[in-house]
Amino acid sequence: MNDITHRPKKLKIATTSLAGCFGCHMSFLDIDERILPLLDLIEFDRSPITDIKHCGPCDIGLIEGGICNAENVHVLREFRRNCKILISIGACAVTGGLPAQRNHLDLGSCLTEVYLTEPGLAHGHIPNDPELPLPLDKVHPLHEVVKIDYFIPGCPPSGDAIWKFLTDLIAGKTPELGHGLIKYD
């Protein structure tokens, strides 16, 4: 007898990296072969893994990286609109992280130094292509822009931490990391 109709509906998960380095996505892939049993429970919507460009209605959204430009804000809001549960993953999404270390500097002087006055940058210019998203004056963690439901700290969180968090969540439990899995570095 075909039991396919009795299988629980797979949860839809979308992932993206904003002002991040994709390190958290690499760490996600560190769950290794456990991705196979995971795929019995979930399917990916928008994600670098599927290359789908826009997020449809999803159960869970995982976002790494903070908010450093106008496009980041746009993508973050698209995820918030579509995801029942939105998770900040990694130091940059949770705290602003490395990109936020520019927050005490003036954005104009940062751009000037990087593109104009650094030695070896003869004839340089500040990129001004209209397709480039405008940088924000400060870098923000995600929870300063939209409501975030859960946070997985770490730079990056380990594959084991991501696995524990997701499997707790999928099982309907409040996710807990505990000693050894919770880390900020």
Partner: peptide, 21 residues
């Protein structure tokens, strides 16, 4: 401070970061 955060399962600072200079 970090170890206390771990032990108390603090996953986020929650508040707006002040980024002191």
């Amino acid at each position: 401070l970090q170890a206390l955060g771990y032990d108390l399962e603090v996953h986020t600072a929650g508040f707006r970061h002040m980024y002191p200079d």
